[in-house]
Design a protein around this nucleic acid. Sequence first.
DNA 1: CTTTACGCCTGACGGC
DNA 2: TGCCGTCAGGCGTAAA
Length: 271
Amino acid sequence: MPELPEVETIRRGVEPYVIGRRIEAVVVRDARLRWPVPKTLPAYATGKQIHGVTRRGKYLIFDLGGDRLIVHLGMSGRLNVLEHDAAPRKHDHVDLRLSGGIVLRFHDPRRFGAVLPWPAGHADHVLLRGMGPEPFSDAFSGDYLYKRSRRRSAPVKTFIMDGRIVVGVGNIYASEALFRAGIRPGRAAGRVSRAAYAALAAAIRDVLSIAIEHGGTTLRDFAGARGEAGYFQQELMVYGRDGEPCRRCGTAIRRLVIGQRSSFYCPHCQP
DNA sequence: CTTTACGCCTGACGGC
DNA sequence: TGCCGTCAGGCGTAAA
């Protein structure tokens, strides 16, 4: 499933193929996504031009010139650019047929994703309301994390994965960033020092930007916008490495469940 | 307010 | 070969 680097990789991959093109038709084969694709979506989108593709957290936003289209990939979603129309395969739920013969195809086996209209005039979409700052924005800093975390008992890993605190940090990069910052994932967020949060904010930005440079992480469901793989997996320090030696000190990496999610850490490097 | 558990789904994998 | 349990990248919701 895509985290921020995967979504950003997809955004960068898709945008040049769709920008300036007109949506000629919308084909909904299965509307049963996280929220049902509205029956009004084809009429809403057809005839409009795609002016650009932006990202907020893990949401992709297609700018239709005032009106917008929100796409979320959930755990297993993909967005493929087809230069020629091709027969749909299993789980190819939604197509945007664009001018010039390009087809943008939403594929999502688990159907945790979403394709939703966001009409002009609705200033803040309900799904985007209350979201925390982007990790690369000025609003996101060690001091910010420190202030937001006071008197919180929840684990620091859960804290940084909370989209109301900061967007885009998913399960892989939460473990990776905590390793880089030398912080145990199960530590209470309110008991992490200001200095450690400074290191953590930097680590989050570093790990996300390096992952974007590598085109994301390849795991079982992720492929880039046109099907190519990402190369961050070989850079992973702890995620999925339970029992394997720490790349820094050789100690066996441990796995534990925090907030119902697998978490990985080095007991020596993350005291 | 914060914290925690639970669904929503399909598919891959390992053990028997 | 099949069956069954576990796990998977997200996140809104309800309950405590």
